[in-house]
Design a binder for these strands. Sequence first.
DNA 1: TTGATTTGGAAACGATCATTCCCTAATTAG
DNA 2: CTAATTAGGGAATGATCGTTTCCAAATCAA
Lengths: 207, 207
Amino acid sequence: MTVATLTPEAKTRSRGRPREFDMDAALDAALRVFSERGYHAASISELTEAMGLASGSIYKAFKDKRGIFLAAFTHYRKLGRRRLEAMIASAKTGREKVFQMVMYYTELSYGEAGRKGCLVVGGANDFALLDEEAAAHVVTAFAADEKLMADLIRTGQADGTIPKTVDPDAAALAFLCFTKGLRVIGKTGRSREEMMSATEAAMKLVT
Amino acid sequence: MTVATLTPEAKTRSRGRPREFDMDAALDAALRVFSERGYHAASISELTEAMGLASGSIYKAFKDKRGIFLAAFTHYRKLGRRRLEAMIASAKTGREKVFQMVMYYTELSYGEAGRKGCLVVGGANDFALLDEEAAAHVVTAFAADEKLMADLIRTGQADGTIPKTVDPDAAALAFLCFTKGLRVIGKTGRSREEMMSATEAAMKLVT
DNA sequence: TTGATTTGGAAACGATCATTCCCTAATTAG
DNA sequence: CTAATTAGGGAATGATCGTTTCCAAATCAA
């Protein structure tokens, strides 16, 4: 028992009282508040209530309101990326992968989920001219999507399911605009059928 | 001078002290503030400064902050619709009209104008779950765009510049998503060349 | 054990917010 | 003219905001 390496605990303990709340659950709650209300309309009291924490505890765990948002934003991106990559992996051809990526956003853009909106799209609106660093995170998120889509298009061109005449970079940016637009229009509460029809039409971008 | 009909003034005078400020100029200033900062981050003091009015005067002319936004929103839509219809009228064929409509939004989606963003897209983000009536105005604005685009596509099908195989409603919704997405991505500061390449790619929607 | 350190939580803080009040100025109605 | 009405502007108001402070509780280091 005196040998330190005997302890099988994976996580390194830090000094002081250990955190009692579940960080992932707290960030889930925070991103829900930020998505539904937007950054500026979300108040600390709404966040404390949703996260189940007192304001003092929040300010211990995060630097300030902006810090909560950035943590929730990173959490949101990580979750989303995982789901997106799972959908892409389920498709065999490049063209099908492109379709699955667009479908990922389509399924988020109708009904209740659609109304809640996207934290990245919301962040673009809330921070573009007000917070250079936060805006840079949004740029990074969009760039990752754009690059992934361009890669999928090139995959499709390599396996013959997408014509070589398609400009991968131009089509990827067009898809980026389309999917982010889906999220905007989704805030107005459209049906699955409508959004699906638009997505099917958008697949002409890779013909 | 005693005959009332001699007065050539077009506008009917109301009782009391007449308004001194120019309403259109004030709304121009207000929509600039709301576009750049979003509804919730725009403060009354910022609005008073930009509009050149004291807070008391603003609350005489508008009911409240929401009333300022709604008036600016209506003003913004009126101006935009006029410019959009002018661009459409300059095109001859249906397909060219579709292209000009997409170009209208493309030209607003890069550089400084792009960063300022769209009041309707911003409104969708700021009000969707917080203000039913304001959200309805956003829905109306999107619906008008969608319908206009569908009409242009049908015009193109009638004059033979757009294939009959295109579903006008599905393609119109896809274009709506694309153009609103342009405005979102435009907030991150892209170049004219990039946005143009996406727009050219998007024209595949009507092939 | 003792001390250092960190979290949890409630209350307190100053700043800022949207809004109202009040007084003066300018106009119309009679 | 006088009375009624509306606009302009600035000070005052109450509420709420984000943040800090303070103290008790829980852990680690020694």
